[in-house]
Design a binder for these strands. Structure first.
Lengths: 183, 183
DNA sequence: CTATAATCGGAACGGTCGCCCCGTTTGACT
DNA sequence: AGTCAAACGGGGCGACCGTTCCGATTATAG
């Protein structure tokens, strides 16, 4: 592959990563091309469709999240990580909510499996209510992202996590830190 | 006003109400016109912009919700009502999430004030954690709607409500009913 | 019934966006 | 340096959508 082609491909990927994170999946290809300093045609040379470009960018993030889930992290912590990923990166938020372009099933499945494993461990340890399913968690993540994006109140995750616990108030008093303060 | 004009205006309103609830704010005007059995021009004769038509439809629902809040309902119940309103009516969901067309500030304020009042009562009664703000509740409603829309699991509201309560497990065991069961 | 003006409907406009085309440029190999 | 295929870029196409326009229609007053 020619050097300029490789360089341009990288520019497009970087620009796409940045713009998608800020603007979400709705950003026009022209905007990505402009920020990459190339023409729209060049973007389509490297990525046949907008969807394929988005996948290239988003899959990278999803794999990073999957790795994080496998790193011995706590369920509640990872829940927060997922929500923060969605809040920080609008493209991730859109993908998690299935709002826009689909991602390959295997990447989705890997992340879901890792997350489900953490959930199972937490349930066996009694930290999380037993009647919660992985699908519930997915939905809650989407909801928390939507919640936190609505305004800056990321700490609302604590409320949801508290609701997930089978028994509250045993050494986990909400006092001491305002769970929500924004504006 | 001519009789046919009045009739058409009503047709447009009915069609808009129905289509907006199902499809959300993104539905094209042409689709509303088609379902109303009129031309697009007729829609614009009665409502100068798409936004004004949406407002006419949505304001009605928001006032109904405000009335409901003032009817002596419990906070947790009303929380559920709000989420269900968003789940049933995509236009309401979009408006609550500020995703699309704005609504007049006074209608929004009235609903918020009524909801905030319910929250305050619940907090004074000790049912809801004292550190929760009305804005937090708004965000949580949006999140719950997004959550429930993601799949059919409306019951996840219970998890959030449980997280909102200062102490759980005192006569409010989650046992007995599967808080989430879907697909 | 006729005149008249309000109303109707859908074609048309302007803007946006994903995607393609093709004349031009440029990097790599000799 | 010369050659040429690969890569570039931006104009253009088709589709969609909100909005406008105007000739045809029709309700209503006299």
């Amino acid at each position: 592959m020619r050097a300029d082609a490789r360089r341009n491909r990288q520019s497009v990927l970087s620009a796409a990563y940045e713009v998608l994170a800020t603007e979400g999946l709705g950003v026009p290809i022209d905007e990505i091309a402009r920020r990459a300093g190339v023409g729209a045609g060049t973007v389509y040379r490297h990525f046949p469709t907008k969807e394929s470009l988005i996948q290239a960018v988003v899959l990278d993030r999803l794999h990073a999240l999957t790795d994080k889930a496998r790193s011995g992290i706590d369920f509640a912590e990872f829940f927060t990580v997922m929500v923060e990923a969605g809040v920080t990166n609008r493209a991730i938020a859109d993908v998690l909510a299935s709002g826009g372009y689909r991602i390959p099933a295997d990447a989705d499945a890997a992340l879901n499996a890792a997350f489900a494993e953490l959930l199972d461990q937490a349930q066996q340890r009694g930290t999380i209510r037993a009647d919660i399913t992985p699908d519930d968690i997915n939905a809650l993540v989407v909801g928390c992202v939507a919640t936190a994006r609505h305004r800056g109140c990321t700490d609302l995750v604590q409320i949801v996590v508290a609701g997930l616990s089978p028994v509250r108030g045993a050494g986990r008093e909400p006092a001491g830190g305002q769970p929500s303060r924004s504006g």
